[in-house]
Write a protein that binds this DNA or RNA. Structure first.
Length: 478
RNA sequence: GCCCCCAUCGUCUAGAGGCCUAGGACACGGCCCUUUCAAGGCCGCGGCAGGGGUUCGAAUCCCCUUGGGGGUACCA
């Protein structure tokens, strides 16, 4: 194992989103590729928005995709705890240290005051930055404010001059001016840490070597976090900012773009390997013309240096196609097992040992884009069709067919059924389209769908006979 | 507004100065296969944002413009 360590730090304020999942995939692939360690850390510093159920749901979705972590809140690890809410004392300790070294200071400004300042700045067209009025408070002033009962927040002292260079392994060197940053808060007045502070402390303490995350962190968070590293006297990890994933409207992918949760895609019948495959393709390519991979292959071909810089628009159509590919690649047992829940939830009576059903599903898998399409496609297998009336000439055709079928000693294979269907042309003296649509309608009630020979073979002699008889006797009654 | 980033077919991308009359994939269109719907096979449509440089030579390097995105919290 190399000493490369990456982390995936979701905030449990909602279900795992496709955009977030992609970040997890890139981190995980990088870790596996480099034989490093993948850490799961829960960023629940905001107690009002964080929920335990989301934490559980996120972990389930990660596992479903096949992304197992080496260290995390549930399994522990050398740098536990892995839940930020359990690390508050640590953050406070470092905040105090910065205070003591005069690298941070207490700020007594009220939220209201700050809000008003910001609005005014916006109106003036100025940059809404904190005016640093508490930065040089005298001791006496501080004591005075304390005595008034005001609980201070802690702000870090950002250098007034100079610039920050972010060395990004995906984008190269980027420059930011300290002047565009302000003295941001590292510890709220309720003693909880802010994101940019907690992250730095954790990444450092957890010995994270590569911070790979979305570009949305690049312009605001990364420079601020570098300030924290510097004030603490720590070396920064390597940073790599992935290009954003955008929705059809070209804005950052979010709930506004409809169902974008991993779980929802799972429900629709997307395979985990389809999700990881497609998401890996957003912002990354193998360099040659291959683009269909399962997880293991992805590890082999993945290369962080092949990640691009420009944002990618999420394309549902292509995901569909990728899923179609992976479904086609499933073997008979796999596709059957994974299909069962979709059939059961459609209230079909499913027998888990039904070999014929198993063969049927396997034989039509390549026509599916999502598993949720399956029930409608093989409805004929579970439900008898509605009766309909036929003409005298149609009756003759079905009679002929019936006679033949009744001679079968056993059920037909796909090939045998096919031959049977073809031979009918001779016997009936009709072209195929003169009788095949009628047989289809009789057996399934539909005019289109699965190949007839598969239908006949799957239904078996008795059911075929039964459905022919149903139409025939219905005709007699009229 | 200010700061930062990005820029090849509608979309995802290959392309790291001559291999490019720009390659692949999705989508789309046509044809074939086929009782039908899918699937599949074949063919096709379609792009280097614009303008300046640098160079014998630029999709590739530089600058400007334009366009798009992201960030501007006691959210993460």
């Amino acid at each position: 194992m190399s000493n490369i360590r990456v982390r995936f730090p979701p905030s449990p304020t909602g279900f795992l989103h496709l955009g977030t999942a992609r970040t997890a995939i890139f981190n995980w692939l990088f870790a596996r590729k480099e034989k490093g360690v993948f850490v799961l850390r829960i960023e629940d510093t905001d107690p009002t928005r964080s929920k335990k159920e989301y934490e559980t749901a996120i972990m389930e979705d990660l596992l479903w995709m096949g992304l197992k972590w080496d260290e995390g809140p549930d399994i522990g690890g050398s740098y536990a705890p892995y839940r930020q809410s359990e690390r508050f004392a640590i953050y406070q300790e470092y905040a105090q240290a910065l205070l003591k070294e005069n690298k941070a200071y207490e700020c007594f400004c009220s939220a209201d005051y700050l809000e008003k300042e910001r609005e005014e700045a916006l109106v003036r067209g100025a940059i809404p930055r904190y005016n640093r009025r508490c930065r040089e408070l005298s001791n006496a002033e501080r004591v005075g404010l304390m005595e008034k009962g005001i609980v201070p927040a802690i702000r870090i002292k950002t250098p007034l001059q100079g610039e920050i260079i972010v060395e990004d392994i995906i984008r190269g060197n980027l420059t930011f001016a300290y002047q565009d940053l302000d003295d941001f808060i590292i510890q709220r007045s309720d003693k909880t840490p802010t994101y940019n502070f907690a992250v730095v402390i954790d990444d450092y303490l957890m010995k994270i070597t590569h911070v790979i995350r979305g570009e949305d962190h690049l312009h605001g968070n990364t420079p601020r976090q570098i300030v924290v590293y510097q004030e603490l006297g720590w070396n920064t990890p390597y940073f790599g900012h992935l290009p954003m994933v955008l929705g059809k409207d070209k804005s950052k992918l979010s709930k506004r773009h409809g169902a974008m949760g991993v779980h929802e895609y799972r429900e629709m019948g997307y395979l985990p390997q389809s999700i990881t495959n497609y998401l890996a393709l957003l912002g990354w390519s193998a360099g040659d013309e291959r683009e269909l991979f399962d997880l293991e292959e992805l590890i082999r071909v993945f290369d962080l240096s092949r990640v691009g810089k420009s944002p990618a628009i999420f394309d549902d159509e292509k995901l569909r196609w990728v899923n179609h590919y992976h479904i086609s690649n499933l073997n008979e047992k796999e596709i059957f097992d994974i299909s069962l829940p979709y059939l059961i939830r459609t209230d079909y009576q499913v027998d888990k040992n039904d070999n014929r059903l198993r063969k049927l599903i396997s034989s039509i898998k390549s026509s599916l884009h999502r598993l949720e399409e399956l029930p409608a496609r093989i409805r004929f297998y579970f439900k008898s069709p509605e009766l309909f009336s036929i003409s005298p000439s149609e009756r003759e055709v079905l009679d002929g067919v019936r006679k033949d079928v009744s001679l079968w000693k056993e059920d037909f294979s796909f090939d045998e059924a096919n031959n049977f269907l073809n031979d009918l042309s001779q016997k009936l003296g009709l072209p195929k389209k003169g009788y095949l649509p009628l047989i289809r309608k009789t057996l399934t009630g539909e005019e289109k769908g699965v190949e007839l020979n598969i239908i006949i073979s799957s239904l078996g002699r008795d059911k075929v006979l039964e459905r022919l008889d149903a139409i025939l006797t219905n005709h007699e009654k009229q």
